Computed example of a mutant assay.
Amino acid sequence: MRNNQLKMLIVTALFAAIIGIMAQITIPLPLVPITGQTLAIGLAATILGKKYGTLSVVVYIMLGIAGLPVFSGMSSGLGVVFGPTGGYIIGFLPAAFLIGWIVERFGFTLTSAIIANIIGMIVTLTFGAIWLKFVAELTWMAAITGGVTPFILVGIIKAVIAATVGILVRKRLTSAKLLPASIAS
């Protein structure tokens, strides 16, 4: 039992680092860049489930707030979290929880993982657009046009990749006994 918890904490820390690394993969857009963060968060939640997937996101955000350059563009600090794109960062938390909850509840299958990751994408974009509207003082149309529309297709693609790779990696880690078969504890 204790050994499993230690393994899960190590894997959780590893995924926090992976999120930070993937955040540096960016395609600049006028308001909000396309990044690898959401792909990494989908992977973490699909592989680790709701508890440890969400914890990996908490660790990632705390590292960024503490000053480590883990946010997009090697940025960090509270200014990023409270800036125009901070809603996306905050949205990562409920997205990870929901993705993990759905795959735990409905099974670690490709279908449930794809659905979970698409829902996670919608949650992240919703938080991001609402935050962007108020912090950047945009109209609803401008917030949706700049903060949601450019991310729908790429978000679906990342959701499918996160689900496919996540389920495969989870199966391999479980069979190698690097992940416990049941992670709900």
Rank of each mutant, 00 (worst) to 15 (best):
M1Q: 11
M1I: 05
M1S: 09
R2F: 13
N3Y: 13
Q5N: 09
M8N: 03
M8H: 03
I10V: 15
V11S: 02
V11Y: 07
T12N: 05
L14S: 06
L14K: 06
F15A: 04
F15N: 00
I18T: 05
G20D: 08
G20M: 09
I25T: 05
I25D: 01
T26C: 08
T26F: 04
L29Y: 07
P30S: 12
P30I: 05
P30Y: 07
P30A: 07
P30M: 06
L31N: 14
V32K: 01
V32F: 01
P33M: 11
P33N: 06
T35W: 02
G36E: 06
G36M: 10
Q37G: 06
T38D: 00
I41E: 03
G42S: 12
L43D: 04
L43E: 03
A44E: 00
A45S: 14
T46C: 09
I47W: 03
I47T: 11
I47Q: 04
L48C: 03
G49M: 00
K50L: 11
K51N: 14
G53L: 04
S56M: 10
S56V: 13
V57G: 02
Y60H: 01
I61Y: 00
L63N: 03
G67I: 15
G67L: 11
G67V: 14
L68S: 04
P69D: 14
F71Q: 00
F71Y: 08
S72D: 07
S72L: 05
S75A: 15
S76E: 06
L78K: 10
V80F: 02
V81N: 01
V81I: 12
V81K: 02
V81F: 08
F82K: 10
G83L: 05
P84V: 14
P84D: 10
G91A: 06
L93R: 08
P94V: 00
A96W: 00
F97N: 01
F97V: 03
I99H: 00
I99Y: 00
I102A: 01
R105T: 15
R105P: 13
R105S: 11
R105L: 06
F106D: 07
F108D: 09
T109S: 14
T109I: 11
L110A: 06
A113S: 15
A116W: 02
N117T: 04
I119Q: 02
G120R: 05
I122A: 13
L125T: 06
F127Y: 12
F127S: 00
F127E: 01
I130E: 07
I130A: 12
I130V: 14
I130Q: 10
W131S: 02
F134P: 02
F134Q: 15
F134D: 15
V135M: 11
V135S: 08
V135A: 09
T139M: 13
W140S: 05
T145G: 11
G146K: 04
V148E: 03
T149K: 04
P150H: 12
I152F: 08
G155N: 05
G155F: 01
K158H: 03
A159N: 05
A159C: 11
V160A: 09
V160F: 03
V160L: 08
V165A: 10
V169E: 07
L173S: 08
L173Q: 09
S175T: 15
A176D: 12
A176R: 15
K177M: 10
K177P: 10
L178E: 12
S182C: 11
S182Y: 12
I183W: 00
